[in-house]
Design a protein around this nucleic acid. Sequence first.
DNA 1: CCTATATTTGCACTATGGCGCACATATGCA
DNA 2: TGCATATGTGCGCCATAGTGCAAATATAGG
Lengths: 115, 115
Amino acid sequence: MKSRTTCCRDLEKWLEPDTFRALGEPSRAALLMLLAGTPGPRTVGELAAELPIDLSVVSRHLKVLKDVGVVTAERRGKEVRYRLACGDLVHMLRNLADALESCCPTAAIELEVRR
Amino acid sequence: MKSRTTCCRDLEKWLEPDTFRALGEPSRAALLMLLAGTPGPRTVGELAAELPIDLSVVSRHLKVLKDVGVVTAERRGKEVRYRLACGDLVHMLRNLADALESCCPTAAIELEVRR
DNA sequence: CCTATATTTGCACTATGGCGCACATATGCA
DNA sequence: TGCATATGTGCGCCATAGTGCAAATATAGG
């Protein structure tokens, strides 16, 4: 059994508002879907061609996603290839799920909420 | 050709911008931490007492979190007890991680090697 | 050096949303 | 009924941020 005051330190570590705010914007979520939908990297122009927003806006969204570590960018000549940081993202989500689970003994809560 | 839409259907299902936008607000993230830090439900007043924002704002934040299914509310006399929907949240995070992993090139390779 | 292509950035506009205050609503109790 | 406590809501203020356009930057090729 863990102490109540220290049980959620991991939660604080993985529940980063900046990351979730980045994922919470519809255009950026669409970008993630596009990046996840095809193997290999994609350029800004390719991504912008499939979204109803300006290319400059796509570029800015990709910067936001890159700043929180959700995507990575690699310059290749004139183009910049963005790819999903899939491993890191999956790692973060699983760690957050584990932290939440350790904080929330659902069985105990169910017992306490009896009537 | 849009074959990519077939491999990430689950991703689209679990990557809901509304949920992540709710989690991406610092005050709401703090509320989640408070709810996760102690077992059992907490009232609006209790939560507001630990945050530097007005109680009415806390009430609104809790409504946002409730609307996306991250917390649940139960009226108990004059009070309303909010508690973290921990199971659902963990379930969503794990499913999203699985969906992302299935979309990852490396994961796809591993899946094929495994067969 | 000049041009073409790809991406980023400056700028202004606008929409969204967090915030506090005042007030309304809900519930319990005398 | 009347009052006290707890929570939700209407309203306006203001900061943040998404958007498009145009200019600036980066890179490759002639």
